[in-house]
Design a binder for these strands. Structure first.
Lengths: 243, 243
DNA sequence: AAATCTTAGCGTACATATTACGCTAACTAT
DNA sequence: ATAGTTAGCGTAATATGTACGCTAAGATTT
C-alpha cells in the first residue's frame, strides 16, 4: 500500500458469520504486557481495526486491515458508523498498543466502522489466521472498550439491511430451500417466524424462482429448490421489505 | 476551541430550511481569485464545512463551523455520511482554498457529513451572515464539486428520518393543524398526500393530541389545533411509520 | 342577505397485508 | 407398517392502504 499511515483515521470491522443456527463475530486476540512489579501478560479479544494509509480509500483500508489481521479477504464491507469520542483512546491500552504497533504518536483518532456478513460453511472464511476467532454473538457482551456497543449497532444496521437488500441471498447457495432462506432471517433477525406465513409472503416475490429440482437424502419430505433472480429483484425493488 | 486544527478531518453541513411550501439549503459564498493574465474573481456557493480541531467532537465541530460560516446556531445536526474519495481535493479549488484558509498543508481530508433541518419562518434562522444564503433545493443541482450529490443523499436520509422520527414536529409550533403537519410531509417527502387518508392515519397516533382550541382569522372553516406529546410518542414508538 | 369559495373533517367501499392457525403430503428411520 | 419430521396448501379474522364522495363552517363576494 502506498504512502504513510495517517495518524488520525482508522477503520474497525465487524464481520458477522452466519453459522446455520447462530451468528458469530470475527475477533482478533491482542496481547498486552504489563511491566509492573512482576511482568504479566493479558490476552483479550478486540475487533479487527487499524490506522489507514494516506492514499487509501476507507473501504480499501477496511479490506486490507481485515485481511492482514484475520486472513479473510474478498468480502463485501459496508460503512455504517463513525467513532469520534475523545475518550476512546484515553486510559486504555488501545492508545499504547496503537503507538507500539505503528510507531506513531497518536493524538486523535477518528475511526470509521464497517460491517460485513459471510457464511461460515464457506471454507474460504471458516479458516482464519492464528489469533483470530469466530466468537458467538452471545459471548460478545463483555468485550473491552466500546466494542460490544459497536457490534450491537452493526447488528441493528444489518437487520435493517436484511429487510430491504438482497443480503440474505448472499449467504445461500445457488439453489436453496424456503426453509433455508427462513433460517437466515431467523438467525440474523433474532426471532422465530411462522413458516407458513413466510411462504405466503415469498409467493409475491417473483425474483425467487422455483426450480424443477428437489432436495435429496433428507430424512423427511424433500423440499423444492429455488434460485434468486437478481435482475428481477432490481426491477421489483421499489417497495419490498422482507418479514 | 482548544487545540490545533486536524489537517485530516473535516465536517460538512447540509442544513435544510422548511419554507412553508418549499425546501431550501443553506450555502456559503466563496470567492476565488485567479491570478492569470488578468486577475479574475469568481464567486460560487458551497456547503458550509471546514477542518475540525484535534480535541473536538465531530458534532461539536459541525455546530461550530456552521455557526462561524453562517451565523446559525443551536440546531440539531445528525451525522449521515463520510466522504473519503481521494480525488475530492484534487484539481479543485477546495484544496487551495483550505490551505489558504487554514495555513496548513493538506494531504488528505476525510470529511464527515451532517444534516439538519430548521423552519425558515423562525426568525432565529431566517437571518444569516453576509455570504450565506438559503438556496431553493431545485437550484442546487449544479453546485461545484460533489456538493449536489451530498445534498441529494442528505435529503434521502432526511426523508427516511421523517418516517420514523419526531423530526416533523420540530418544524411546527406548539399548536398546529393537521393540514400544517401534512404540508411538512409533503414538502420534505416531495409528493402530495390525500388529506383524508392522512387524517385517518393520524387517528391511530395518540401522541398527537387534539386541543379545545381552533384556528382564527382564516378565510375558511377554522381547523382544530393539536399538540405533540413527546412522552406518549416514545411509548408508542415501537412500530410507527408515517405515511 | 344570499351565493360562493375554500379548507375541515367524517364516512364508505374495495384491495391488499398480516397473523394465527389446521391439515395433508412425502420422505426416512425403526 | 408405523412413527417422526418437515413440506406445503388452505382458511378465517383482522389490520392497513387507497380512492373517493359528501357535508360543515367560516370568510369573501355580489
Amino acid at each position: 500500500m502506498t504512502g504513510r499511515l495517517n495518524p488520525n483515521i482508522s477503520v474497525d470491522c465487524v464481520v458477522f458469520g452466519f453459522d446455520r443456527d447462530c451468528l458469530r463475530v470475527l475477533l482478533v486476540e491482542r496481547e498486552i504486557v504489563f511491566h509492573g512489579d512482576t511482568e504479566k501478560t493479558v490476552r483479550d479479544y478486540k475487533l479487527p481495526g487499524s490506522l489507514v494509509y494516506n492514499e487509501e480509500l476507507l473501504k480499501d483500508a477496511a479490506r486490507r486491515v481485515l485481511h492482514d489481521l484475520t486472513g479473510i479477504g474478498g468480502i463485501c464491507l459496508e460503512r455504517y458508523d463513525v467513532l469520534d469520542s475523545l475518550e476512546r483512546m484515553d486510559n486504555r491500552v488501545d492508545r499504547q498498543w496503537l503507538e507500539q504497533t505503528t510507531g506513531l504518536s497518536i493524538e486523535r483518532v477518528v475511526s470509521v466502522a464497517f460491517f460485513g456478513l459471510v457464511n461460515l460453511n464457506d471454507p474460504l472464511v471458516s479458516k482464519v489466521k492464528d489469533g483470530a476467532r469466530w466468537m458467538n454473538l452471545d459471548e460478545t457482551k463483555q468485550l473491552p472498550f466500546d466494542h460490544s456497543a459497536i457490534i450491537e449497532r452493526a447488528l441493528a444496521v444489518l437487520q435493517q439491511r436484511l429487510r430491504v437488500d438482497a443480503t440474505a441471498f448472499g449467504l445461500l447457495p445457488e439453489k436453496f430451500t424456503i426453509a433455508g432462506l427462513q433460517q437466515v432471517f431467523e438467525v440474523i433477525g433474532g426471532e422465530k417466524l411462522d413458516s407458513r406465513n413466510f411462504r405466503k409472503k415469498l409467493k409475491n416475490f417473483h425474483f425467487i424462482v422455483p426450480l424443477r429440482e428437489k432436495q435429496r437424502n433428507v430424512a423427511h419430505k424433500p423440499a423444492r429448490l429455488y434460485s434468486f433472480d437478481h435482475k428481477r429483484f432490481l426491477q421489483s425493488r421499489k417497495s419490498i421489505s422482507f418479514f
